[in-house]
Structures are given as structure tokens and as C-alpha cells.
């Protein structure tokens, strides 16, 4: 008896060793270890983190280096560049290009506002909208997905119809319809009061629009999980539905949820930019990467830095989180990656 036991244990240890090293490490620790070996994902994750930190430091930069605010106009000002005095906005309306100095580092826009300062403040707004929208999507989608998959029947039917409704409604059209009407009127649903120009409005819209994309896969996974023995065991043990959903089902879908987070942040930032481009996102004079790009697009031929600077920042941020997100997914589901690599070898022959 003792020998059998020790053989089993030895076998288990060997299996764990093959996957990541020491025995008894949780799946998330293992995933973290795998992620740490993925240099490209880490580098792009660091790029995204750097952009976040820079944007958080926006007030510091505005105060200490640029000496101006994100909405301060300097249309009639002049600035010394390399010993020459230059108009911030020329009499013909041509805004200043990048000076590569503290003031107007990346140039000015047609209102004489400092692009670098607006870029950082705008990034704060874009990232804030992205983070809040993701939070809203994840929380609601988890609740809806788990409830629909666990209860099935009528609950599933009703929730699935609501998801179908949001899903069939053209995303961008829903976004601009909600965005335009809310930007004018704000939201007043009971205790929830929002001004039309609040950042929470685009965050709210984007958060709602993406719910089906997360809730549907979660529901599918829960449909399988609820038939598993450990759920039966919990039920026999006297656990109610809420308890089973919280402490048996939720931990088992958590890795799927983690994989969705970076993807949703990237999508939310992109949709915010699209809404702002159509005038239904972050409202002026508040900057965001999307509003800055859309302000600049009409002036591309004469002042392309107005579009290219926020555009490059947006693409870098979204690219950073996308590549990092891919790395997280591979780390949490290593078999998928190993499979890919093995077959890749075979395919390349």
C-alpha cells in the first residue's frame, strides 16, 4: 500500500516538474513563470505600462516642464525656438510644429494648445475610459454568463435574448446613437446622475456594447462546468446556487476572464477613438487620443503632427496591450502554444 502511494506521488511530482519546476505551485504561479519567459510579451507589456505611467504624470509635466494646461490657449503667444521667436499659431492659422523643447515639445494645435500636454491628458482620458469600460463589461458579462449557463431554462432564454439584441445592434451605430443622445442630455436613471460631458458616458456605452462578446463564451463554459462532479459534490454538501456559482464555478472560469481583460482594454480604447471621431465619445474641450486625431484629420495636409502624434501613441498603447494579452493567453493555456509549436515544426518540413 505504501509503495503504491509513493509511486503515485512520485508520478505526480514528475508531471509537475515537466511543466514548470517545483511541485505544489498553483496554476497562476505557473502561468506567471511562463509569461516571464516570453520576452516579447513582457517588452510590449512594459511599453504599455510606460505609456500609462507617462499619462498619469500628465499634471507634473504640464506644471514643471510645459508650464501650461491641456485646455489653455496660446493662439497669440510667441515662443523662442533656437534663438528665433516663432508664432504659436501663424497669422494664416498654421500651428507650430514640434519644437523639441520643454514648451510645445510636440508642437501646438490650431487653438494654440500644447500637443504634448494634451497628449498626456488625453491619454489619461482614453485609458480611464478603457479601464472603466472593461471593468463594467467584465463584471456584467461574468454575472450574465454564469447565471445564464448555470440556471439555463427561462433565465438563459431571457438573458440570451438580451445578448442577441445587443449583439445584433450594429456596434458603432449603437455607440453613436447612445453617445450623441447622452452627450446632450446626460443620464438620469434614479440615483445614477451623469453630465453629458462626463467621461463615464463613453465608458458606460462601450462597457455595455461589448458584454455579449465576453458573456457568450463564459456561458458556454459554465454549461459544461455545471455538469461536473465537483459541482454535484457541492450541491450534495448543501451549497445553494449562489454559493456554487461563487466558489465552484467562478474560480474555474477565472482564467478565461483574465484572458479577456487585455483584449477588452484594447477594444475599448479603439472604440472610444472611433466614437470620438464621430463626435459621440469624449466631449470637447476634454482631450482624448480619439478627439485629438479627429481634430487633426482635417488639417493633415498642412499640419500632420496633429494627427500623427496622438495616432502613434494610440497605436503603440493598443499594440502593447494586444501583444501582452497574447502572451497572457499563451501562458494560461500552455498546451495551445506547445501544440502550435509542435505542429509548426511538422508543418515547416
Amino acid at each position: 500500500m505504501a509503495t503504491v502511494d509513493s509511486t503515485v506521488r512520485a508520478g505526480a511530482t514528475a508531471a509537475r516538474d515537466a511543466d514548470g519546476g517545483a511541485a505544489g505551485i498553483g496554476p497562476y504561479r505557473l502561468a506567471l513563470r511562463r509569461l516571464r519567459r516570453n520576452k516579447a510579451a513582457l517588452a510590449f507589456g512594459a511599453l504599455f505600462a510606460l505609456i500609462v505611467v507617462l499619462c498619469l504624470c500628465a499634471p507634473l509635466y504640464a506644471d514643471r516642464i510645459a508650464h501650461t494646461g491641456p485646455n489653455a490657449n496660446h493662439v497669440t503667444d510667441t515662443v523662442m525656438v533656437g534663438g528665433v521667436s516663432k508664432d504659436v499659431v501663424s497669422p494664416t492659422g498654421q500651428p507650430l510644429g514640434p519644437t523639441w523643447h520643454g514648451r510645445f515639445l510636440l508642437g501646438a494645435d490650431q487653438n494654440g494648445r500644447d500637443i504634448a500636454v494634451r497628449l498626456l491628458y488625453g491619454g489619461r482620458n482614453s485609458l480611464e475610459v478603457g479601464a472603466l469600460a472593461t471593468l463594467l463589461t467584465m463584471v456584467l458579462a461574468t454575472i450574465v454568463g454564469i447565471a445564464a449557463g448555470y440556471f439555463r431554462g427561462v433565465v438563459d432564454g431571457v438573458l440570451a435574448r438580451i445578448l442577441d439584441l445587443i449583439w445584433a445592434y450594429p456596434v458603432v451605430l449603437l455607440g453613436i446613437a447612445l453617445g450623441t443622445s447622452l452627450a446632450l442630455g446626460g443620464i438620469a436613471i434614479g440615483p445614477l446622475q451623469l453630465q453629458g460631458n462626463s467621461l463615464l458616458v463613453p465608458a458606460f456605452i462601450i462597457g455595455i456594447v461589448y458584454i455579449p462578446y465576453v458573456a457568450k463564451p463564459i456561458r458556454g463554459q459554465v454549461l459544461g462546468l455545471r455538469e461536473q462532479e465537483f459541482v454535484d459534490a457541492a450541491r450534495v454538501g448543501g451549497a445553494g446556487p449562489l454559493r456554487i456559482m461563487w466558489s465552484e464555478i467562478l474560480p474555474n472560469v477565472s482564467s478565461t476572464l483574465v484572458v479577456f481583460v487585455p483584449l477588452m482594454v484594447a477594444n475599448a480604447i479603439l472604440l472610444e477613438a472611433a466614437l470620438s471621431y464621430l463626435g459621440a465619445g469624449v466631449q470637447p474641450p476634454n482631450p482624448s487620443w480619439g478627439t485629438m486625431i479627429s481634430d487633426g484629420i482635417r488639417l493633415i495636409p498642412s499640419a500632420m503632427h496633429l494627427t500623427f502624434v496622438p495616432g502613434a501613441m494610440l497605436v503603440l498603447a493598443v499594440l502593447g496591450i494586444n501583444v501582452f494579452g497574447d502572451g497572457v493567453r499563451d501562458a494560461l493555456d500552455p498546451r495551445a502554444k506547445v501544440r502550435l509549436e509542435e505542429r509548426g515544426e511538422e508543418a515547416s518540413r
Binding site: 480619439g290 486625431i293 493633415i300 495616432g311 497605436v315 493598443v318 497574447d326
Partner: peptide, 18 residues
Amino acid sequence: ALVGVSTPVFLLGAVALY
């Protein structure tokens, strides 16, 4: 592919037009 997925279509369109 990654750059394509990370670029808003209106930015790409504007840059291409320029």
C-alpha cells in the same frame, strides 16, 4: 497582423489618403 488589429480604421484611412 498585430499592427493591423491595433490601428483604428479612420486613422489608417487618413494616413493612406495623405
